[in-house]
């Protein structure tokens, strides 16, 4: 269940298309044909299934065309039943209920991008690529799947973007060689990865030597459970200064603290040097730095406020500042 119950809207299923083995795409339009509110690459919507199930699906249509929204659903028979329900029950012309688009996987501005997609993990990547390409960024997509026929949007991406897109169907060329692309850290390059947990674990391991903050992942397991709420704003009590600051999604705690004139020593501002370590008096941090040892992470007693944030579901931190 999602942490925040978002407002929902009823939409009409305009088209249902089988776009790959076990994958259907749903094109959703507003009942009155009006455009959808603007959304950013990486966004998803909650899809309300029948009476009780809610599942999150990444939007894979174009954020520049708000006449419709598109999601793609992989049928996973042994999962909790949401995807099979979609495959078996949803037909064109039906009305379904969705949330407004929300973004837990926003794309940050940089010079170069490496997109890694495993299977249905391609969906949030598609609008990201469209944005990066239009912005004239240097980018590359490596997209792995079981077989060509199982890889949604694979051919279309190749056609549209040519050699920037590398398709890796496992039955033809084995698994994606992540070591080859991630073994050497790159400067000013962000990695956006979405796919199965095993793939993401390998990606995380290989990115350990990259500058902190280079890697951005979306685990659809976590998203499906609605546990990723790090993109929500939260409040921080600065106990010694007697102030409270709100930390919006596009600012760091350090930024917000400095904005109200409270002094903190910092240096790299990327979670690499450890200078801005701050004692946590209450609340649960989500560590995103590259310096704090595991023991300290687990204790939750201190955090690097230049990159780390409040954990999912924790709306308030108290810091010794």
């Amino acid at each position: 269940m999602s942490v925040l119950r978002a407002r929902t809207r009823d939409v009409v299923v305009d088209r249902v298309e089988r776009i790959a083995e076990d994958v259907v795409s749903l094109v959703l339009v507003n009942q009155d044909g009006s455009p959808f509110p603007a959304w950013e690459p990486g966004s998803h919507v909650d899809l309300h299934l029948g009476e009780e199930h809610v599942r999150q699906y990444s939007l894979c249509s174009s954020p520049t065309d708000l006449s419709h929204l598109r999601i793609a659903v992989l049928n996973v028979p042994d999962s909790r039943g949401g995807s099979t329900w979609v495959h078996e029950n949803i037909r064109p012309g039906e009305t379904v209920s969705i949330s407004e688009p929300r973004n837990n996987f926003p794309i940050k501005d940089s010079r170069k991008y490496l997109f890694l997609a495993g299977g249905i993990g391609i969906t949030p990547i598609i609008p990201m690529i469209e944005w990066a390409h239009a912005a004239g960024k240097e980018w590359q997509l490596i997209y792995g799947g079981r077989s060509r026929g199982s890889m949604a949007f694979g051919d279309r991406l190749r056609e549209e973007y040519g050699d920037r897109v590398q398709l890796v169907p496992e039955d033809e060329s084995g698994r994606m060689d992540l070591q080859a692309v991630l073994g050497l850290p790159r400067a000013h390059m962000l990695v956006y990865a979405c796919g199965p947990t095993g793939m993401l674990r390998t990606v995380e391991d290989l990115c350990m030597g990259w500058p902190p903050g280079s890697l951005h992942t979306e685990k659809f397991a976590a998203t499906a459970l609605g546990t990723t709420s790090a993109a929500e704003p939260f409040d921080v009590d600065l106990v010694r200064s007697g102030k409270t600051v709100r930390v919006p999604t596009d600012r760091t705690i350090l930024d917000a603290v400095e904005d109200v004139g409270v002094r903190v020593l910092s240096s790299c501002r990327h979670g690499l040097c450890g200078t801005c370590e701050t004692t946590v008096l209450a609340g649960e941090p989500e560590h995103r730095d590259a310096v704090l040892p595991q023991e300290d992470r687990d204790s939750g007693d201190m955090m690097m406020i230049c990159v780390s944030r409040a954990a999912a579901g924790c709306r308030r931190l108290a810091l010794d500042l």
């Binding site: 400067a187 240096s267 790299c268």
Partner: peptide, 10 residues
């Protein structure tokens, strides 16, 4: 804060 007396980056 943010000076480069200790260098910066990797």
């Amino acid at each position: 804060s943010g000076h480069v007396a200790f260098g910066m980056g990797l």
